[in-house]
Nucleic acid binder design. Structure first.
Lengths: 188, 188
DNA sequence: TGACGAGGCTAACGCTGTTAGCTACCCTGG
DNA sequence: CCAGGGTAGCTAACAGCGTTAGCCTCGTCA
């Protein structure tokens, strides 16, 4: 393991070929047609089976969504770890925010799904949440700074995705303002 | 008008007595039973009419929700304006965050409804959005700082409401960390 | 008095997630 | 070699959702 590597995500739950196919189809459906298009019948159509047959592989729609969320967290965590590894403190915050924004904007519906509700933690892969959030601690060196920075990043992304900022906003500068606020501050 | 007053919200759209009753019932239903309980049939039950009759007063469920969102924004904006009026720069940011958090936590489901999706801006009361967001500009004196602070506040609230922070987090300190970050920073 | 809009009603449509029950295949034990 | 059982598909159906069509009954006003 080289000095510039980052910790691997916790082992993912194994999926049967059919289950993996369902999750892949669900993701494609969600990203290309939006959340309203993600129905069990349409999902069955894409896979080539009837909706009730999906229940042979997943206990219900929330379980399919949870699998998608786990995938999204692995990808987001990977991007964030890659951004902070080997960076100095000042660079790390900016690089982390850039990676966070880019990953979320690249898959907006998936990001929304993964973050816009409570998580069934007991059903999630052990340690995945901690691992994905670790880069915020690595970049700030303080748990409260890390949480605050995460809140800022998530707030920015979700408000941007939902077009909640005024239409002519210069969001690059707003991101920069947030980054500056967090790098120039000492932990309380 | 005294020196410690704040600007009044833009005039609200007038509602017939029945329409007001529907919105009030919807809010009570949402807050007490959660978003899944907010159905047109249940809403009719509370008001004392059948679900299809609601369509004599609103074009559809989204219109009822929009009315609730407008009410929520008036209340949030009022609380935020009250918090910043007459405060010094350093105090204003902290007071603003306290008011934001308190208002959101007091009506979690309403806050989620008002912030967790895109807004049909053309159907909203003119100027309401600007007016509700104005305290962020008053507290920071800079539009990008204002947006960044809003993103932080919203991120904190929504992650707290959805129990996304690790269970034993000391969120008071995280809020303080964010406040400190934004008061000690100069505009970029 | 007659017309008409406002606001209620029932019935129904198409959609949703989900369950029950049936069937066909494959693998394994006797 | 055959019986049993699990795996994974199917159709039919249910309850609930938002919404629409069409009807009826008031109150108001020309």
């Amino acid at each position: 393991m080289s000095a510039a590597s980052h910790p691997a995500p916790p082992p993912a739950t194994v999926r049967s070929p059919r289950a993996a196919q369902v999750v892949e189809a669900a993701r494609q459906l969600l990203e290309s047609k939006g959340p309203d298009a993600l129905t069990m019948r349409r999902l069955g159509d894409v896979v080539g089976i009837r909706a009730p047959s999906i229940y042979k592989h997943f206990p219900g729609k929330p379980a399919v969504e949870l699998a998608m969320i786990e995938d999204a967290m692995v990808e987001l965590g990977t991007a964030l770890h890659r951004a902070v590894v080997g960076a100095t403190r000042g660079e790390a915050v900016a690089a982390l925010l850039v990676a966070y924004r880019a990953t979320a904007v690249a898959h907006p519906n998936l990001y929304r799904l993964a973050t816009s509700a409570g998580l069934p933690r007991q059903d999630m892969a052990e340690g995945l949440e901690d691992w994905a959030g670790e880069p915020f601690y690595l970049a700030t060196g303080d748990p409260h700074q890390a949480q605050a920075l995460w809140a800022f990043a998530h707030g920015m992304v979700i408000l941007e995705l939902d077009h909640r900022f005024l239409p002519d906003s210069d969001l690059d500068r707003t991101w920069a303002a947030g980054a500056a606020a967090f790098v120039t501050t000492v932990p309380v």
